[in-house]
Amino acid sequence: MKATFQVPSITCNHCVDKIEKFVGEIEGVSFIDVSVEKKSVVVEFDAPATQDLIKEALLDAGQEVV
């Protein structure tokens, strides 16, 4: 499964690193693409990962998800 999250609070590479760390810890996540320019995060994943778990990880990383 693939999901795109709009994350307007992404401003720098530190944000990218933190997002990759938090989302990458979720079992089932196979790909993460964070774009500072587009302020988006694209995640490819399989169970047990879910969109809700990914959104929670983004929030835990200090990001706003819309």
Results as ranks from 00 to 15, higher is better:
M1S: 11
M1F: 07
M1Y: 07
M1E: 08
M1P: 05
M1V: 09
M1I: 10
K2R: 12
K2N: 06
K2A: 04
K2P: 00
K2Q: 06
K2T: 10
K2D: 05
A3W: 08
A3N: 06
T4I: 14
T4C: 13
T4E: 14
T4K: 08
T4W: 14
T4N: 08
T4Q: 11
T4R: 09
T4L: 13
T4S: 09
F5E: 07
F5S: 05
F5Y: 07
F5D: 07
Q6Y: 15
Q6A: 08
Q6N: 12
Q6L: 14
Q6I: 15
Q6F: 15
Q6P: 06
V7D: 05
V7A: 01
V7E: 05
V7S: 02
V7Y: 02
V7I: 09
V7T: 05
P8K: 11
P8T: 10
P8F: 06
P8I: 11
P8W: 05
P8N: 10
P8E: 10
P8Q: 09
P8L: 10
P8C: 09
S9T: 13
S9W: 14
S9P: 04
S9D: 09
S9Q: 06
I10E: 04
I10G: 04
I10M: 07
I10F: 06
I10P: 02
I10R: 00
I10A: 04
I10C: 14
T11H: 15
T11S: 10
T11A: 09
T11I: 11
T11C: 14
T11L: 09
T11W: 15
C12Y: 10
C12W: 07
C12E: 11
C12G: 14
N13T: 13
N13K: 14
N13Y: 10
N13L: 12
N13M: 14
H14Y: 11
H14D: 15
H14C: 13
H14G: 12
C15W: 11
C15Q: 12
C15T: 10
C15F: 09
C15R: 06
V16N: 04
V16C: 08
V16E: 04
V16P: 04
V16M: 06
V16F: 05
V16Y: 05
V16I: 10
V16D: 04
D17I: 14
D17G: 08
D17V: 15
D17A: 14
D17F: 09
D17M: 11
D17N: 09
D17S: 12
D17T: 15
K18M: 11
K18D: 07
K18F: 08
K18T: 09
K18W: 10
K18N: 07
I19A: 00
I19S: 01
I19D: 02
I19W: 03
I19P: 02
I19G: 02
E20Q: 14
E20Y: 15
E20P: 02
E20I: 15
E20H: 14
E20C: 10
E20M: 15
K21W: 08
K21Y: 09
K21V: 05
K21R: 11
K21T: 06
K21Q: 09
F22V: 12
F22A: 13
F22Y: 12
V23W: 02
V23D: 03
V23Q: 00
G24S: 12
G24Y: 12
G24P: 02
G24N: 07
G24L: 10
G24K: 09
G24C: 09
G24E: 04
G24Q: 07
E25Q: 14
E25D: 11
E25L: 14
E25V: 11
E25Y: 07
E25P: 05
E25H: 09
I26P: 00
I26K: 00
I26R: 00
I26Y: 02
I26A: 02
I26L: 09
I26D: 01
E27R: 09
E27G: 05
E27N: 09
E27P: 11
G28P: 00
G28E: 00
G28F: 01
G28V: 03
G28W: 01
G28H: 02
V29F: 00
V29Y: 00
V29L: 03
V29E: 00
V29N: 01
V29R: 00
V29W: 00
S30L: 13
S30D: 04
S30E: 06
S30H: 12
F31I: 08
F31A: 10
F31D: 04
F31Y: 12
F31S: 11
I32P: 01
I32K: 00
I32D: 02
I32S: 00
I32F: 01
I32L: 06
I32W: 01
I32V: 11
I32A: 02
I32N: 01
D33M: 12
D33A: 11
D33N: 10
V34N: 01
V34K: 01
V34P: 03
V34Y: 03
V34A: 06
V34T: 04
V34I: 10
S35P: 01
S35C: 07
S35W: 04
S35D: 12
S35G: 04
S35K: 05
V36E: 04
V36W: 07
V36K: 05
V36G: 03
V36D: 02
E37N: 06
E37K: 09
E37W: 05
E37G: 06
E37T: 09
K38M: 12
K38Y: 10
K38L: 12
K38D: 10
K38Q: 09
K38F: 14
K38G: 09
K39P: 01
K39N: 06
K39Y: 04
K39S: 07
K39V: 04
K39R: 11
S40G: 03
S40N: 07
S40A: 07
S40M: 15
S40Y: 13
S40V: 14
S40R: 14
S40W: 11
S40F: 11
S40D: 04
S40P: 02
V41C: 04
V41H: 01
V41E: 01
V41Q: 02
V41W: 00
V41S: 01
V42W: 08
V42Y: 15
V42C: 08
V42I: 12
V42Q: 06
V42N: 06
V43E: 02
V43R: 00
V43D: 02
V43A: 03
V43T: 01
V43W: 00
E44C: 15
E44D: 05
E44S: 10
E44G: 12
E44R: 11
E44H: 14
E44L: 14
E44V: 13
E44Y: 15
F45H: 02
F45P: 01
F45D: 01
F45Y: 14
F45A: 00
F45I: 02
F45W: 13
D46H: 10
D46A: 12
D46T: 12
D46F: 13
D46Y: 12
D46N: 13
D46S: 13
D46L: 07
A47Y: 13
A47V: 08
A47I: 08
A47T: 07
A47L: 13
A47D: 06
P48S: 02
P48N: 02
P48K: 01
P48F: 03
P48Y: 00
P48D: 03
P48V: 02
A49C: 05
A49T: 03
A49P: 02
A49L: 02
A49K: 01
A49F: 01
T50D: 04
T50K: 02
T50H: 04
T50R: 03
T50G: 03
T50N: 06
T50A: 03
Q51R: 14
Q51H: 14
Q51K: 14
Q51C: 15
D52Y: 07
D52E: 13
D52C: 11
D52R: 11
L53W: 05
L53D: 05
L53T: 07
L53R: 13
L53H: 06
L53Q: 12
L53S: 08
L53F: 05
I54R: 00
I54N: 03
I54F: 03
I54M: 01
I54W: 01
I54C: 01
I54E: 03
I54H: 00
K55Y: 14
K55N: 05
K55R: 14
K55L: 14
K55A: 08
K55M: 14
K55S: 05
K55W: 14
K55T: 07
K55D: 02
K55F: 13
K55Q: 08
K55E: 08
E56K: 15
E56D: 10
A57Q: 02
A57N: 01
A57K: 07
A57L: 04
L58G: 02
L58K: 01
L58D: 02
L58W: 02
L58C: 00
L58V: 03
L58R: 01
L58I: 14
L59C: 06
L59F: 09
L59E: 09
L59A: 08
L59M: 11
L59T: 06
L59G: 06
D60R: 14
D60M: 14
D60N: 14
A61D: 01
A61E: 02
A61P: 02
A61W: 08
A61S: 06
A61R: 02
A61M: 08
G62Y: 12
G62K: 04
G62P: 03
G62W: 12
G62A: 08
G62E: 07
Q63H: 15
Q63R: 07
Q63N: 06
Q63L: 15
Q63D: 04
Q63P: 03
Q63K: 07
Q63V: 13
E64Y: 11
E64Q: 12
E64F: 12
E64C: 15
E64P: 06
E64R: 10
E64I: 15
V65G: 06
V65Q: 06
V65T: 05
V65H: 06
V65Y: 06
V66L: 09
V66H: 08
V66C: 13
V66F: 05
V66Y: 06
V66T: 11
